[in-house]
Amino acid sequence: MSSMIKINLDMLLVQRKMSLTELSREVGITLANLSILKQGKARAIRFSTLVALCDALNCEPGDLLQLEKE
């Protein structure tokens, strides 16, 4: 049984009433890369990106990342 990391970006954006474009502008990450992250197609995430996202969304890394068992 393999597990995978799920990104809860969708949920957090809805909760913060924020669009992906706004987040992209605030964090300084391209819309394309944020989209890859949101779709769960990213292979890894840098600590700096994680910090920037958490700052912008005012959340903990644990709120953003979730271990999902398949």
């Binding site: 944020l34 890859i36 990213a42 292979r43 890894a44 840098r46």
Partner: peptide, 8 residues
């Protein structure tokens, strides 16, 4: 390289 590309 793929891993590096997939790192956000």
């Amino acid at each position: 390289y793929q891993e590096q590309l997939g790192t956000i």
